[in-house]
């Protein structure tokens, strides 16, 4: 969607979720900058500190034309959820989801120590997709981590998901606004690789139909 298009809701509520270390904070910051540059008011609430150590993390983005909104989103109010880890999508859906929510989900599991140690079982992929699909209006499942590893570093998965969001054409995000936002917070030598990841994410989404 072009950068001058209208928001489909105000405040428009976006959640980025994942596991500590997956680049959640960076992704929210890039998106926040994209919308700030376009003149929107942006509020981001996120998880820092102890909770980052292998725990579930979540950023709430509130994008508005009118003002500053709460950094904590009220229950059931998400428009879009970007999930860097599939079971985290479920957790966020339970708190902030609704039948209209749109979901972009990276398929790569990150096992918690409860799963690693055998105290809990990680669900089957197809079962997970079924659940996530049932709880959302549209859901895309993307192998972002795998594609990122092909690029040489799994950390690019977060940027690929932003590329995918742009390609999903629901929000005013495009390559130029992305590049400008990334340049604001990253050293110049890293911009090109991130743009590549952004493009790869977009291509991945366009090749896929939403759904399990």
């Amino acid at each position: 969607m072009a950068a001058d298009a209208k928001l489909p809701g105000d405040p428009y509520n976006l959640v980025i979720t994942g596991v500590g270390g997956q680049g959640n904070v960076l992704a929210s910051r890039v998106l926040g900058n994209i919308f700030t540059q376009q003149g929107y008011r942006v509020t981001i609430g996120e998880t820092f500190g102890a909770s980052q150590r292998g725990g579930s993390v979540m950023s709430h983005l509130r994008i508005s034309e009118t003002g500053t909104w709460s950094p904590r989103m009220p229950r059931g109010r998400a428009h879009v959820i970007i999930s860097l880890e599939p079971t985290e999508a479920l957790r966020v859906l339970a708190d902030y989801g609704n039948p209209e929510v749109i979901l972009l989900c990276n398929t790569r599991p990150v096992h918690s120590i409860a799963v690693i140690s055998g105290q809990a079982r990680y669900p089957q992929q197809d079962q997970l997709r079924q659940w996530i699909g049932d709880l959302s209006a549209r859901a895309w499942f993307l192998e972002a981590t795998r594609a990122a590893m092909e690029m040489g570093n799994p950390i690019f998965a977060n940027i690929m998901m932003i590329g995918a969001l742009a390609a999903a054409d629901i929000l005013p995000v495009d390559k130029d606004s992305f590049k400008a936002a990334v340049s604001q917070i990253m050293p110049e030598d890293k911009v090109a690789a991130n743009c590549l990841a952004f493009d790869r994410g977009g291509q991945m989404l366009l090749k896929k139909e939403p759904g399990p």
Binding site: V19, A50, S51, R53, G54, G55, S56, G76, T87, E88, L90, R91, L93, A94, G97, N98, P99, S112, I113, A114, V115, A120, R121, Y122, P123, Q127, L128, W131, D134, L135
Partner: peptide, 20 residues
Amino acid sequence: YTEKAGLCVLAGAPGRDLTF
């Protein structure tokens, strides 16, 4: 919706305790 989502979390989102 809340009930359905709650059940999914129970069944499909194993706890994530903090870890080093």
